[in-house]
Design a protein around this nucleic acid. Structure first.
Length: 365
DNA sequence: TCTGGGGTCCTAGGACCC
DNA sequence: TCTGGGGTCCTAGGACCC
C-alpha cells in the first residue's frame, strides 16, 4: 500500500457537456465562448477535439476562431449547467471514499491509499462515465505536481503515472513551460538566461534566479523543476478571498460620464453577489482597461467592513475618481476583497498546491 | 477583424513606526 | 544637523491558472 495523488480532469469538459445536451453535435467542431456570437469580443472557453484539429483552442479570440473554422458550431457559455454537472462529478469522486480537493469545474485532486493506483484510477473514470457519460483522464503521482502533469500525457480518457523515478526521463528535455506555474512570460525570461528545458532549470542556481525573479519565486522555479510539490490533498471547502465582476464592452466607451454610470451598474451587480456572502468586504477595487489594452486599478479601503450596496457603490465611485486618464475604455471591473482570515504561516508561502519554505538558506540543494 | 471573466499569489516601493 | 536599520502594512502591477 502507498499514498498516491491522482489528478482527475474531464476531457474537453464544456464542449462535452454541450454535446451531451445536443447529441446532434457529436463529431462536429464545437466552440463554446462568450455569448455564442463569434462576431463579438470574446474568447474561446473550450473547443471540442474536432475544433482543436483546426487550431481553435481555449483563449483564442472568437473572431479568430470563426475565421479559422467558419463552419464550427458556436455556443454561449452556460455556467450554471457546467456547475451543476461539476457537482455531480465531484460527488462521484467523493463516493469512492478518497479525499477530494476540487480545483475547478473540471478537475480535482484525489488522495488515496492503494497498492494499485492505476486500477483505482480506472475505476474512478468508469464511475464518472457511468454517472455522467463524460470522459476523464487521470494522472497519477507521488505528489500533486506529478499528478497534474501526468494528466497531460494521459489525454484523452487515459491513465498515466509520473513519479520521482520517471520525472526526468519523461520531462527532462521538455520546455520549462511544461511545468504547472510557468507560463509564456517566465519561459521567455528563462530563455534569456539560457534555460530552456526542465533539466536545465533543475540544475539552475536558485540565488541567480532569485535576483531575476524575486526572493521567493526564483528559488521556487528550481524547486518546481526538481519536482518538489505538495503531497497533502485538502478536502476543506474553498473559501474565496475576493469576488469581482468585470465586463468588456463591445464598443469602447469614450464618454467618462458613461464610464461612471457603468461602474455604478457593475458595482450594483457585485453588491448583489455579496448578498449571499456572509463576510463583509473590506476593500473595493476598480479596474479600467483602456482601448490599447493597458490595464490600471485603484482601490479604496472601507472605513468599516460592509456588504451594503450603497457603501460598495460609493467606494467604487471614489476608486474610479482616482483615475486621471480619460482615454477610451474597453473594460471596467469592480472587485470586493474580504478580510484575510487566513494568514500565511510566518516565513512561508502558499502557492496553490504547495507550501514552500522561505528560500533564505537554500536547504533544498 | 486582436486579446473574457473568475480568481490566486508574489513583488516592489513607499509610508510609518520604533 | 544628519543619519541608522528593522519591521510591518498598504498599494498597484504582473504572472499564472481554469
Amino acid at each position: 500500500m502507498g499514498w498516491w495523488v491522482l489528478h482527475v480532469d474531464l476531457d474537453q469538459f464544456i464542449a462535452a457537456v454541450e454535446v451531451l445536451r445536443h447529441p446532434e453535435l457529436r463529431g462536429r467542431p464545437v466552440v463554446v465562448g462568450g455569448d455564442g456570437d463569434p462576431t463579438k469580443r470574446g474568447v474561446v472557453s473550450t473547443a471540442s477535439y474536432e475544433a482543436r484539429e483546426h487550431g481553435v483552442h481555449s483563449g483564442l479570440p472568437l473572431r479568430t476562431a470563426a475565421k479559422r473554422l467558419p463552419d464550427a458550431v458556436f455556443l454561449p457559455v452556460d455556467r450554471e449547467a457546467y456547475e451543476e454537472i461539476s457537482e455531480t462529478v465531484m460527488a462521484v469522486l467523493r463516493s469512492s471514499g478518497a479525499v477530494v480537493e476540487v480545483l475547478g469545474w473540471d478537475e480535482a485532486f484525489v488522495g488515496v491509499e492503494t497498492s494499485d493506483p492505476e486500477a483505482f484510477a480506472r475505476s474512478l473514470a468508469a464511475r464518472v462515465r457511468a454517472e455522467t457519460r463524460l470522459d476523464c483522464t487521470v494522472g497519477i503521482g507521488e505528489n500533486k505536481l506529478q499528478a497534474k502533469i501526468a494528466t497531460g500525457f494521459g489525454k484523452p480518457a487515459g491513465v498515466f503515472r509520473l513519479t520521482f523515478a520517471s520525472w526526468f526521463s519523461v520531462l527532462g528535455d521538455r520546455p520549462v513551460d511544461a511545468l504547472w506555474g510557468i507560463g509564456a512570460k517566465t519561459a521567455k525570461k528563462l530563455a534569456g538566461l539560457g534555460i530552456h528545458t526542465v533539466r536545465e532549470l533543475a540544475a539552475a542556481d536558485p540565488d541567480a534566479l532569485a535576483s531575476e525573479f524575486g526572493p521567493m519565486t526564483g528559488p521556487w522555479l528550481v524547486l518546481l523543476a526538481c519536482v518538489r510539490g505538495d503531497v497533502e490533498v485538502d478536502a476543506s471547502p474553498y473559501v474565496a478571498k475576493a469576488h469581482g465582476r468585470e465586463e468588456t464592452f463591445q464598443r469602447n466607451i469614450a464618454d467618462w460620464s458613461r464610464v461612471q454610470a457603468e461602474v455604478a451598474r457593475i458595482a450594483g451587480l457585485l453588491a448583489g453577489d455579496l448578498a449571499s456572502e456572509p463576510r463583509p468586504a473590506v476593500r473595493v477595487v476598480v479596474k479600467v482597461r483602456y482601448a490599447p489594452f493597458v490595464t490600471e486599478s485603484h482601490g479604496v479601503t472601507l472605513a468599516s467592513p460592509s456588504s451594503d450596496a450603497g457603501v460598495i457603490a460609493v467606494a467604487a465611485s471614489q476608486a474610479l475618481g482616482r483615475f486621471t486618464g480619460r482615454r477610451p475604455v474597453r473594460l471596467l471591473g469592480v472587485r470586493a476583497e474580504f478580510g484575510s482570515s487566513l494568514r500565511l504561516f510566518p516565513g512561508g508561502r502558499v502557492i496553490g498546491w504547495s507550501r514552500v519554505p522561505r528560500p533564505s538558506r537554500q536547504p533544498w540543494l
